[in-house]
């Protein structure tokens, strides 16, 4: 593909007419998604709208029926799964977990853990970690790949409100440090408003997308999430703008 990435506006990931069928059921159709360098795109949508399926198609875990996923040449994907069930019979320390499938230098592992906000958990056993620590180790694992694209699938699941906010604040810092694009799936609309450049609203297909404020006002969005959610977003936006004025 003669498409070397140079400027910030070239896409680092793009899907064309992606069509996914699982077990005879159409989950996704006509997905045209573009992710630019260093951009944060948030994927929202109700349960069963195909958010996780789309993410799995992007990382190559699901083969689409038709359409394609193009990734800029040489771009690496760091993936943070929704959750990971480690069987309790499998003893593994954080350090060993981060060394799979490829070994990394001790210094890089420590760096990645630090960047993920996981501090010094190297010697801990994975199944002794709290939910928040576990999530940060998964993030560190993605960062070890020096990703150009960081994909997070509802990574805040299992965290409380405060924990979620802290986690997403961290993602923003990580994006700046690693200069990577971020695609995250979220159901927390407040977080979406705060941190996304671009919101994609999914319901089997992309029903609306754009700047968070514009998506919140669209009728498709209201139809999906109800007026209440839309109002709370509008309220948040208002709040946010006021703060911005003061600052």
């Amino acid at each position: 593909m003669p498409d070397p990435i140079s400027s910030a506006s070239t896409p680092v990931l793009r899907t064309r007419q992606l069509h996914v069928v699982l077990g005879g059921r159409q989950i996704l159709h006509d997905i045209n998604l573009t992710l630019h360098r260093q951009e944060i795109v948030t994927l929202i949508g109700p349960n069963g709208s195909g958010k996780s399926t789309l993410v799995k198609a992007l990382i190559g875990a699901i083969r689409p029926l038709s359409g394609r996923v193009d990734i800029a040449t040489g771009a690496r994907i760091g993936y943070v799964p929704q959750r990971l069930h480690l069987d309790p019979t499998l003893p593994v320390s954080v350090a060993r977990f981060l060394d799979l499938p490829r070994r990394h230098s001790r210094q890089r592992v420590s760096e990645a853990l630090h960047d993920a906000g996981a501090g010094d958990l190297r010697r801990m056993a994975m199944h002794h970690l709290s939910g928040g620590q576990f999530q940060r180790v998964l993030l560190a694992r993605a960062l070890l790949m020096q990703p150009d694209i960081l994909i997070l699938d509802e990574a805040s699941q299992g965290l409380d409100h405060k924990g979620t906010a802290a986690f997403y604040k961290h993602i923003e810092a990580v994006r700046q440090r690693y200069r990577c694009a971020v695609l995250m799936v979220s159901h927390d609309l407040h977080v979406v408003m705060r941190s996304a450049n671009h919101v994609v609203c999914l319901n089997g297909h992309i029903c609306c997308e754009g700047k968070p404020e514009r998506v919140a006002l669209s009728s498709d969005y209201r139809a999906l999430f109800g007026d209440h959610a839309a109002d709370s977003l509008a309220f948040y936006r208002h709040d946010h703008e006021e703060t911005a004025d003061v600052g």
């Binding site: 190559g60 875990a61 993936y79 799964p81 990971l84 799979l100 499938p101 490829r102």
Partner: peptide, 18 residues
Amino acid sequence: SALLTATMSEELAHASGI
């Protein structure tokens, strides 16, 4: 290594090219 990764999570394995 590949076996261990795939045992822990199929999706992480996919993301690592396994």
